[in-house]
Every structure is written in C-alpha cells, then in structure tokens.
C-alpha cells in the first residue's frame, strides 16, 4: 500500500546492524548464526550483506551465486528455504565474476550501496540483520544514511577477547555514538577453545575482553561464543549449525544471545 521512500523496508519490523571495528572477528559468522537461531525461534529473518570487497554470507548459507531478479518493488532476495523464512540479499550477487576484485573508491561504493539498500523487496520480516565490512568508513556511513530514512533499531558489536580487537571496537562504539546508533550489546566471539581430545580449555585469543569492554563503556553484554572448530567447519560447508549440534555449548551460547536480542528489540 504505502509506496513512500522507505518502500522496500516498510514491512520490516526491526533493523539490526552487525558491526566491528576489527576484521575477522566473526561478524558474518554471528550474523549467519543469529539469523538461523531467529528462524528457529519462528521469526521471519532477512540478511543484507553489504561487504563489497569480501561478501561471505552466500557461502555461509550455501546459496552459491544465484541469478537475482527484479520485480516492480526492487531486487527479489534469495530464500534459503521453502517456507521463505530466511531471505538473503548480498551485494556479491550483483558482481559479474566472484573472483574478480572489486576495486572501487569510496564515492562509487557509496552510490552503489545507496541504491542497493533501498532497492530490495524484502516483504514482511521480523528482523533484518545487516552484515558490514570491518571499519568505520564509506560503507558504514552510506548504509546508515540510507537505512535511517526508515529506522535502525541499533547495532550488535562483535569483538574477540584480546586487546588488539577490543581496542578497535572501542572506536566503533564512538562511531555509534556519533552517528546516533543505539548499541544493543556486545558479543565476545572466539572466546576459549576446548580441546576435543582432552577437554583442556586454551584461551587462544585471551578471554573476557568483550565483557570488560561492555562494562567499561556501559553497554549490555550479550554473551560469549567459544572458539569451536565444529562451528568453523559448519560455516565452511554452509550447514545449519543450530540444527546439527543442538547440544553443544556453542549452540546454547548463540541461542541465549538470540533470546536477549529479541527481548531488547521487543521492549525498546
């Protein structure tokens, strides 16, 4: 009905950004697992992947490189299941050759992201998760500018425990404050590795840094996800971890983060 400027997002209830100042901390992994967990909780979920130089979500959800189509209201997202409960749109789908390097300067990226963000026909969604590249630059500013015309509920910040990472995420918190994005909480990823042979726990990337950062900055701590080879394997193969290992500590951590997130979205 309503065909105003937030057209494609008009039936999207909540928009959540997944951010981190640091690279490789698991933004795309956490986005994927949260989407799967939200679907398990009976929600309709969408993922918008705006990482131009390294779009990871298509592989993580095993959708390959589908042809995307346009309808009257924009690009039709790709559904990962027959029930159409998980929709994905990746900027990677629009690239001509997946191995080709996208070597673009900021201005061009901004123009592309601007169109891309407001041009996907999401339909009705409970939660739209937005996976971003590392940093605080063109992509982030453009995504925010364009999503804000609609509404952004807030951001989840992902960090790994060590200081090299929490230091960068501290700057990301400033980015959120300056741009007026509410921080929904901090996730500590890759926290502690339990040896599958002897059950000894090694803190390969240290431990506790995410929780400390949350305290220091007065943000909510959403939980920690252990460093789990079964999770990286599952991500590599594009399998649904939440279905394959429902008894694991990793799954419990992810579903608890998902519950906390839903609560805070619904009470806000």
């Amino acid at each position: 009905m309503e065909q105003n400027n937030d057209g494609s997002l008009s039936q999207v209830r909540h928009v959540v950004l997944v951010l981190s100042g640091k690279g490789g901390v698991g933004k795309s992994t956490i986005t994927t697992e949260l989407a799967l967990a939200l679907r398990h909780a009976g929600k309709k979920v969408g993922i918008l992947d705006v990482d131009l130089c390294g779009p990871s979500i298509p592989r993580m959800l095993c959708v390959g490189r589908p042809d995307v189509h346009q309808c009257d209201s924009g690009w039709v997202p790709v559904y990962t299941d027959a029930q159409k409960s998980l929709a994905l749109m990746s900027i990677g789908f629009l690239l001509e050759d997946p191995d080709e390097a996208v070597v673009w300067r900021g201005p061009k990226k901004n123009a592309m992201i601007g169109q891309f963000v407001s041009d996907v026909a999401w339909g009705e969604l409970d939660v739209l998760l937005v996976d971003t590249p590392p940093g605080t630059s063109d992509e982030h500013l453009s995504v925010l500018e364009n999503l804000k015309k609609h509404r952004v509920d807030g951001a989840i910040l992902v960090t790994t425990p060590q200081a090299v990472s929490t230091g960068d995420v501290r700057r990301e918190i400033t980015f959120c404050k300056k741009t007026g994005v509410r921080i929904l909480g901090i996730v500590e990823n890759m926290s502690g590795f339990v040896c599958p042979h002897c059950s000894e726990c090694s803190n390969i990337f240290s431990k506790g840094g995410g929780e400390e950062l949350a305290k220091l900055t007065g943000s909510m701590f959403l939980g920690s996800v252990p460093l789990d080879p079964l999770l990286s394997k599952s991500i590599e193969e594009g399998k649904d971890f939440t279905e394959s290992f429902p008894d694991s500590a990793t799954f419990r951590a992810i579903s608890s983060i998902c519950r906390t997130l839903l609560n805070s979205l619904e009470t806000a």
Binding site: F193, C195, P196, H197, C198, E200, S202, I204, L227, P229, S232, K233, E236, E237
Partner: peptide, 16 residues
C-alpha cells in the same frame, strides 16, 4: 593449533 596439554593438533580454521 597444538594443544599444550595433550599435544594433539586441532584444525580450528579447517583447510576445507
């Protein structure tokens, strides 16, 4: 990663 306690190697980021 070689576990310091049992010396077994785990492929935490598996070369699939």
């Amino acid at each position: 990663f070689v576990c310091p306690s049992c010396k077994n190697t785990s492929q935490i980021f598996p070369p699939t």
